[in-house]
Amino acid sequence: MLHEPATKVGKDAASDWKAKLGIKLFWLYCLIYMGFVGIAVFSPDTMKAPVLAGTNLAIIYGMALILFAIVLGLVYNRVCTKKEDEMNAKAEGAE
C-alpha cells in the first residue's frame, strides 16, 4: 500500500511520447541557457552591447530566458494535452 500514488493515475498511452518531447525541449532550453552563461563568463563585454531600445544584451537575454521558459511551457502543455486525448482515445478503441 505504501508505494501507490496518492491518487490513482489512469493508464496513459501518451506517456513515452511526452517524456521524449520533454527531453527535447529541455535540451533546447539548456542550450540557450548555456549560451547565456558562456557569454557572461568568456566574453563579459559582449553583455554590454545595446540590443533593444538602448538596453544591453545582458538584460534582454536574461528577460528572454524568462519569457522563453513561459512560452515553451505553454507550447508543451498544448501539444501534450492534444496528444494525450488522441493517443488515449486510440488506445481505448483498440481495447
Binding site: A6, F26, G73, Y76
Partner: peptide, 21 residues
C-alpha cells in the same frame, strides 16, 4: 526560473506517476 524548465520537462510527470507522499 530556468530550474522550472527542468522540473516541468524532465521530472514533473514521472514523479507524479511514481510517488505517494
Amino acid at each position: 526560473l530556468a530550474g522550472w524548465v527542468v522540473a516541468l520537462f524532465v521530472v514533473a510527470e514521472p514523479m507524479k506517476r511514481l510517488g505517494k507522499y
